[in-house]
């Protein structure tokens, strides 16, 4: 563990802000438990990924500048999402070419100290276990950006392994996308639905009663499909379980 309490800024992400505030509170609880001093900068909105992936670099750059200005003063920026985290830590520097060396440098500086939540807890803060209980059989879905951009694979499984009462099951084809893909899911709904149906089938086949992941986009997509199929699988963000906050909100897509 670090000697002093690092100042950590939480980048909440749009989907957690709008859809699943409990994940934000769970992230704060986990970060504090790991010895961080957590702040939530007021000026944050969106990391700009929808614009970036739609080919609108100008807007993506404008939004990136706002995030950079807001978050650069902190020791770390932590994001409860592999995809928004990857946007900042992997894609921001490339938005600023040689014509804007000032922001390029700032983007690189922010990228270097931005982390996805669970990997930050284990890899930077050295967290080995959590104080949580969850009685259930859990399947964990690796989000693509977390897995391939950020190399997050074992970290969530390690912490989940310390949750009392929890049994972890692995999905077949666990490195296959759930079909969310940001705007993809509404631009190409037929293909997206096929992909998420395949994923839902894999989830049901594990026999798990709960599905966890680290990205709200994937979770909304998979929860939406499982719900449509009437599959009795509870869907939650991994942080809710790790922070022992599953009492605070009903599973995604379930009435309170």
């Amino acid at each position: 563990m670090l000697q002093t309490r690092p100042r950590v800024a939480l980048f909440v992400t749009c989907l957690v802000d709008l859809y699943r505030p409990t994940v934000g509170f769970a992230a704060i609880k986990l970060l504090e438990a790991a010895g961080c001093q957590v702040e939530v900068p007021e000026a944050q909105t969106c990391c700009g990924q929808p614009a970036y992936n739609s080919g609108d670099r100008t807007t993506a750059r404008d939004l990136a500048r706002n995030v950079i200005d807001t978050f650069l003063p902190y020791d770390y920026t932590v994001v409860p999402s592999g995809s928004c985290g990857g946007q900042i830590s992997h894609h921001y520097p490339g938005l600023f070419d040689d014509s804007d060396p000032h922001y390029r440098g700032r983007a690189e500086a922010l990228a270097a100290k931005t982390h996805e939540l669970v990997s930050f807890l284990t890899d930077v803060m050295g967290m080995q276990e959590v104080a949580a209980r969850y009685d259930g059989v859990v399947a964990y879905h690796d989000s693509c950006s977390g897995l391939r951009e950020l190399g997050i694979r074992e970290q969530p499984r390690k912490l989940l392994g310390s949750v009392q009462g929890l049994t972890l099951k692995e999905l077949v084809d666990r490195d296959v996308c759930c079909g969310f893909g940001g705007t993809f899911c509404v631009k190409y709904p037929d293909i997206s639905v096929r992909m998420v149906s395949d994923k839902a089938k894999d989830v049901v086949e594990t026999g798990a009663d709960t599905l966890l992941a680290g990205d709200m986009g994937c979770l909304l997509n998979m929860a939406g499909r499982l719900k449509r199929e009437g599959a009795p699988v509870k869907v939650r963000h991994v942080a809710e379980v790790l922070a022992d906050m599953t009492q605070d909100a009903a599973p995604i897509g379930e009435p309170k």
Binding site: Y19, L220, G224, R225, K227, R228
Partner: peptide
Amino acid sequence: GRDLPAPE
């Protein structure tokens, strides 16, 4: 092809 979960 899927439900849209309501916000918390």
